[in-house]
Design a protein around this nucleic acid. Structure first.
Lengths: 229, 229
DNA sequence: TTTACAAATGTAATTATTACACTTATAATT
DNA sequence: AATTATAAGTGTAATAATTACATTTGTAAA
């Protein structure tokens, strides 16, 4: 029979999640105010410990659902943090994920229950432990990923206007983009469906609504896809 | 005093390393033939367990040094694998790293001692556990990283010819590149020093040697750097 | 002196990116 | 019915980047 690895050290494994949302203006992150020690009262990413019989993805999914009430959240693992003293209570390695959620879908009552609050990236507070470092890396990953895959659509309602999409890219990339160039670029990718409907809330003229065409995207072999903006 | 997290499950944390090298022809990886159960006699990435008082980077450095004898190896953490049954002996989460080493520098005796062997990517054998999955992800990361940062130089001797550099990029990106376009592109980046020396082994005419100009690279703010090839 | 061999070099055509301003459609107001 | 106010929608010329492609050069060996 196989021996086990009993001579080796075991550690606690945590999962921490950077939850990105978008409110048509700014890119935001969902943070919680800790109500337990250590660092009680400080702002923190949401996290939890990996359990015996779940994968890291399972754990992240569980944690994300518990805080937001949303299922099928787009998420991506991005880095493992392992400084020996990163958690003052006990040695804990943290595997971090970023997640994108449509800010309209999340359950506000749940957020309130956890003392959670959306912060604009530019106004994010100082976080506990190494969470600011995680946040910065998550932003860089998101920026890069957004040029390689059309993940941004996760942050928008199903139907959206070109202006919404542009504002989202501006928020992610943190730069102003020319309207005509943006529209031409997006249209040339040929992955949106233009609907007959218009959004009439923003102007008298109304602006056409679009949705993401997953099939068209899947059909194209978009491994070389790079959105230069 | 702070309580600990005693109610939570602890796990074994391993580090597995994909070691890339280059022999002026092919991109290679260093694998070891396991001489212990389970999967004795099968090919495997090199790995080890995280110890109590070291970071994951420490562990990867330790493991890489033990196998190759090389210090200051370029390495990058890239993903944590956590399927519950990925290791049949006992639940183990593995954090994977890829490393780039100049194939000439590594200690062959050590490699022999560990039953290690270089394999061309195209001829890599089936590996244990989820190691093939790790390898594939490592290759994709390397390909992407090589376009964003001039990491390729880690795989070459200090002085190298343009043809060597081109062959390296061809091996990493797995595609043929036009010689004139490649040279023009690299020269336009302006991060190489052309030496007066020539390598005379490859032709009667000889070909100029270059070295990477770390200072020039650091001086440029190369965050938008993208090598399209 | 000739030969053989890889190194070195430039340009024109195509494609992608950028910068930039006016017209259109509609609801609300007069 | 006409006017106004507001954001949506649209195109082009200039510039920059990428691609495709063939000949000349320098040296050692024959």
């Amino acid at each position: 029979m196989l021996k086990n690895y009993s001579a080796e050290d075991k550690v606690l494994l945590a999962v921490d999640c950077i939850i990105f949302g978008f409110d048509n203006e700014d890119l935001k992150i969902l943070l919680i105010k800790r109500d337990f020690e250590p660092e009680k009262g400080k702002w923190s990413l949401i996290g939890g410990f990996l359990k015996k019989n779940e994968t890291l993805d399972n754990a992240a999914t569980r944690i994300l659902h518990r805080l937001t009430g949303v299922h099928n959240i787009y998420m991506e693992q991005f880095y493992a943090y392992s400084e020996v003293d990163r958690d003052p209570v006990e040695r804990t390695i943290s595997v971090s994920y970023y997640a994108l959620i449509n800010i309209e879908n999340h359950n506000e009552e749940l957020s309130e229950h956890f003392n959670a609050k959306w912060f604009s990236l530019s106004k994010a507070p100082k976080l506990i432990f190494d969470h600011n470092e995680m946040l910065e890396k998550a932003i860089r990953r998101l920026q890069r990923k957004a040029r390689i895959k059309p993940i941004g659509f996760e942050l928008l309602p199903e139907k959206f206007t070109m202006l919404q999409l542009q504002k989202l890219y501006e928020a992610i990339l943190n730069k102003k983009i020319d309207k005509r160039n943006f529209i031409n670029k997006i249209n040339s990718l040929d992955i949106l469906i233009k609907l007959d409907e218009k959004d009439m809330t923003s102007s008298t003229k109304g602006s056409f609504l679009y949705k993401f065409d997953q099939e068209k995207y899947d059909d194209k072999l978009m491994s070389d896809f790079y959105i230069k903006l």
